[in-house]
Design a protein around this nucleic acid. Sequence first.
DNA 1: TAGCATGATTTGCC
DNA 2: GGCAAATCATGCTA
Length: 308
Amino acid sequence: MRLDNMLLAEGVSGPEKGGGSAAAAAAAAAAGSPADNSIEHSDYRAKLSQIRQIYHTELEKYEQACNEFTTHVMNLLREQSRTRPISPKEIERMVSIIHRKFSSIQMQLKQSTCEAVMILRSRFLDARRKRRNFSKQATEILNEYFYSHLSNPYPSEEAKEELAKKCSITVSQVSNWFGNKRIRYKKNIGKFQEEANLYAAKTAVTAAHAVAAAVQNSQTNSPTTPNSGNEFHMLNMFVLDFLLYPLQVDTLRHVISQTAGYNDALGGNPMYSPHGLNGNGGWHDATTPSSVISPTEGPGSVHSDTSN
DNA sequence: TAGCATGATTTGCC
DNA sequence: GGCAAATCATGCTA
């Protein structure tokens, strides 16, 4: 009975309604992939309908064989009735024995069909099997956030949601990504240095553009300022400095807000230094939310998680 | 096709 | 419950 229910639920037995699309949709929903699984979805449906077809063909064969065998036995009994008396009860008993035998065979068929469906389902639901790399754009967004928050790369829930929305992925995927990134970055800082420089430069250019725009804006709005032209030139040079000597955005923000130079305590690569890591290889304090880190802690602590 | 990259899962810790 | 670390499984590329 349970097997029957399951086959019915999976759309294998019972009336055909699109080859078990409801089951496929349920499986897709359980897999946590909202809309990106049309291929897997149709694949699942195709395989399920294949199973369904085999099941029905076999079932038909068994029923046919059962009927043929019953007729055969009945004929034999009829033949025998010429030599000895055979009661209707005896015939009935024989028929029920045959039916019992065939129903146990049918049960085996149902069982193996259920197994096939379970295997198909588990394959379909196994997220690892259908891992897809994130889009280039998504990876860039995540990397930009990571490298611009390198001193404390622990996005808040809000930031995760924001990133998830921007990247068209789930919040848990964002968490996974940051978890993996932190570990892999820490394990091989050297390897990621180039990438870090790249994103630092990129962010610096963006910041520089913003500063330049702001400066230009303020200049246009205050034409009476006597030295404004000279100031504008000075600030533009400042902006140019950023472009030629890109630092990570944490440092940039620090420099912009405090108008002070960045003194890299580790004295490593002039372009970029992993100052977010502490002596134990951790990020200051991994369990401390970024919002509670003191702004006076150092250049790496100037940012806040919600700054993006 | 091997080797690396990467997203997901598991395990143990706090 | 969030995290680090290890590991798995799949995708990608030379």
